[in-house]
C-alpha cells in the first residue's frame, strides 16, 4: 500500500463499537477459560497422583454362539491412566479351575469406565466366576 492510498484512497472506516452481544460472548469466553484454568490448577495442586485403582464389575451374562459372554465394566478411581489393562475371568467348580478367559483393555483413564466381554465355552452360571484386573502398565 502506498502512502497516498493510506491518506486519501479509501474513506476512514467509521469507528465501530463492540456490540453488547460481543461483550456478553467475550465475557462468557473469559469466564469459561478462567473456570478451565481454575479446574486444571486445582487438579494439578490438590489431587494427588495416586496411581490407577481398578475395579471390575460383571454387568451381565448371555449366551453367544457356542458359548457364553460375560460382560464386564472396568472403572479407574485412581489418579492416573492405566494402559494395556488385563481383565481375567476364572471359572471354577468345586475348587478346581474349569476355564480361564482374559481380555486386554487399551487404556482406562482416571475417573473413567470401559466395557467389554469375556468369552467362555462353559456356562459361567454353573460355577464360581471371578473377574478381576490382573495387570496394567503405566503410559
Amino acid at each position: 500500500m502506498s502512502e497516498s492510498d493510506r491518506q486519501g484512497g479509501e474513506p476512514e472506516p467509521e469507528p465501530e463499537r463492540t456490540s453488547t452481544g460481543e461483550y456478553v460472548l467475550g465475557g462468557l469466553g473469559g469466564l469459561l477459560v478462567l473456570l478451565l484454568l481454575g479446574f486444571l490448577i486445582y487438579q494439578a495442586a490438590v489431587v494427588r497422583d495416586t496411581g490407577p485403582e481398578l475395579s471390575v464389575t460383571v454387568t451381565g451374562v448371555e449366551t453367544a454362539g457356542n458359548g457364553w459372554s460375560v460382560h464386564y465394566r472396568i472403572a479407574n478411581t485412581g489418579g492416573q491412566t492405566a494402559v494395556q489393562v488385563q481383565v481375567t475371568g476364572v471359572l471354577s467348580r468345586d475348587g478346581t479351575e474349569v476355564e480361564e478367559s482374559s481380555a486386554t483393555v487399551d487404556y482406562v483413564p482416571p475417573g473413567s469406565r470401559r466395557s467389554g466381554a469375556l468369552l467362555f465355552s462353559e456356562d459361567p452360571g454353573s460355577g464360581d466366576l471371578q473377574v478381576r484386573p490382573s495387570g496394567y502398565s503405566l503410559p
Partner: peptide
C-alpha cells in the same frame, strides 16, 4: 474492553 471481548469470543468459539 473491545479487544478483550474479542479474545473472549475467539476462545469461546
Amino acid at each position: 474492553a473491545g479487544y478483550l471481548a474479542d479474545a473472549g469470543v475467539a476462545l469461546v468459539v
